[in-house]
Design a protein around this nucleic acid. Structure first.
Lengths: 247, 247
DNA sequence: GAATCCGCGATTGTATACAAAAAAGGAGCG
DNA sequence: CGCTCCTTTTTTGTATACAATCGCGGATTC
C-alpha cells in the first residue's frame, strides 16, 4: 500500500467513522476526577502538576488544563492564592456535604419542575424510563445484594433522566459540573447504604407519581426531599465516623 | 500575635505589596470577559487564540487558560467539537436569555431564602445595606438621569449583597460564574431601561420587606419575581429588535 | 461545468525550555 | 534552643517550538 493511498484512506475514515482518539486534557480530566472521586487521591492531599503528569505519562500542559477545570468545579481547591497557586484535593466536610446536597437537590428540583410542565405525551415517555430505572433499584434493594458502585450508577441514572429530558443547556451544564461530586460522599457510607436503599426507592416513586400527574410543585418538592433525606442519612454516617477531614 | 507570626507576616506582606503583579491568565480572563460583555467582541464571531494573544500582548498559553474558563462559564462556545475545538463568542438568543434569567433568579432566590432564615440581628444588618443600595437606585430613577452602567452596577450590587451575606462558597461560586452574563443582555436595552427602573426599585422593596419579616418563602418568591419580570422586560426589547443573533 | 481530490495555510493541542516565586533547609548569631 | 538571613530545591506560570488537524480553494477528471 503506497503512503499516499494510506493517507487518503486514513483521512476518509477520520471523516466518516469517528476516530476515537481523545484529547489528552480530556483524558487527564476524566482520570483525575476518577482518582479523586474514588479516594485514590486523599482529600486534603497536595496535587502537584509534575507528579500527575508523570503518573499519566503526559506533559504538564494538558494536566494544567484539567486541573483548572477541576478547580472551578470544586474537586480541587487552591489553599494559597497568591501569584502561585498550590492545589489540594478538596476536603470532605460536613458543611460542604450539606451545601452540596442542598444545591443539587434544588437544581434537580428545577429540572423536575420543568419536566412536570411538559405535555402529557412527553411525560409519559419519561415516566416509563424512570419506572424502569427504579424497578432495577428496587430489585437490588430486595435482593440485599450490594455492589455499591452499581447502586450509585443506577441512582445516578435515575436522576440523570430527569435532567436530560427537561433542563436547558445551562442548567444541564451546572448539574453535570456539581452532581458527580456527591459520589465522593456517597462512598463514605457505601457499606451502610443497602438497608437505606428501600427508602430511596420509595422516594423515587413519589417523584414519578408527581411527574405523571403533571404537578410541578409536588415534583420539585419530592426531588428536593429525596436529596435532603439523602443528606441527612449521610450526615449521620459522617457523625458516626467522627468527621475526620482526611483519611 | 506571637513575634514569630508577626515577623513572618511582615516579611510576606512587604514582599507581596512591593509588586502586586497579577497572573497573566487572570488579566486575560478579565479583559476578555470585559470585551465580550461590552460587545466589543460580537456575539457569534470567531475567537482565535493567536489573535487574542497579539491583542493582549501575551503568549497563547494564558489566553488558552482564560478561554477554557470562559467556555465553561458560557461566554464562549465551541461550535465544532471534534478533536480541535473552534471557539466563538456565545450568541445572544431569546431562549438563552430566558434560561439564564430563570436560573439566576432561582439561585439568588435560594440565597434569599437562607438569608431570611438567619437570626434577626444579622438580617437587620443586611437590610440596612439593601435599603441604602435601593435608595441610590431610587434617586437615579427619579432623576431620570441615565448612565446605564451606573444603574447596572448598583443593581448588581444590590443582588450581590443578598448572595454575599447568606450563600455558602459553592452557591456563591455558581452565582459568580453565571450572574455577570446577564450584563450582556442588559446592554441590549440599556437605553430603554430608565423608565423601567422605578418598577425594579419597587420589586426590591418587596424583597427587603420579606427578608426583614424573616419570611423565607416570600423572600425567595420576591427575588424570583424580580428576575422573571426582568426577563419579560428583556424579551419585549429583544422582540422589538427583531432578534438578530449578532449586531 | 460539477464533483472530487489534493495540498497548503490557518488554527488548535502538546511538549519542553525558561523565568519567577514559594517553601525547605542550613549556617550563623544571640 | 530559637530566630534570622541566605542558599537551594521544588513548584508554578509563561513563552515558544513542534505536531496534528481542520478547512478552504484550486487543480483534475469525467
Amino acid at each position: 500500500m503506497t503512503p499516499k493511498f494510506k493517507a487518503a484512506a486514513a483521512r476518509r475514515t477520520s471523516r466518516v467513522a469517528a476516530d476515537h482518539r481523545e484529547r489528552s486534557f480530556d483524558v487527564a480530566y476524566r482520570k483525575l476526577r476518577e482518582l479523586i472521586v474514588r479516594g485514590r487521591l486523599s482529600p486534603g492531599s497536595r496535587v502537584v502538576e509534575a507528579d500527575i503528569a508523570r503518573r499519566l505519562e503526559i506533559s504538564r500542559t494538558p494536566v494544567r488544563s484539567a486541573l483548572h477545570r477541576l478547580q472551578q468545579e470544586g474537586y480541587v481547591v487552591a489553599y494559597r492564592t497568591t501569584r502561585q497557586a498550590r492545589l489540594a484535593v478538596a476536603p470532605l466536610t460536613k458543611e460542604d456535604s450539606r451545601e452540596l446536597y442542598w444545591i443539587v437537590g434544588h437544581i434537580e428540583g428545577l429540572a423536575g419542575r420543568l419536566l412536570a410542565q411538559q405535555d402529557e405525551a412527553s411525560r409519559a415517555h419519561v415516566v416509563e424510563r424512570l419506572l424502569a430505572s427504579n424497578a432495577e433499584l428496587s430489585k437490588l434493594a430486595e435482593g440485599g445484594s450490594g455492589d455499591p458502585s452499581r447502586i450509585f450508577d443506577l441512582d445516578m441514572g435515575f436522576h440523570q433522566v430527569l435532567v436530560d429530558s427537561a433542563a436547558g443547556p445551562r442548567l444541564s451544564a451546572i448539574h453535570a459540573a456539581i452532581k458527580p461530586q456527591t459520589e465522593r460522599y456517597w462512598r463514605l457510607y457505601a457499606s451502610a447504604i443497602t438497608d437505606q436503599l428501600g427508602k430511596s426507592v420509595e422516594e423515587h416513586a413519589h417523584i414519578i407519581e408527581a411527574i405523571e400527574r403533571g404537578d410541578a410543585d409536588a415534583a420539585e418538592r419530592a426531588i428536593q426531599l429525596n436529596w435532603q433525606l439523602g443528606a441527612e442519612r449521610l450526615a449521620r454516617v459522617i457523625e458516626s465516623l467522627g468527621e475526620r477531614g482526611s483519611w
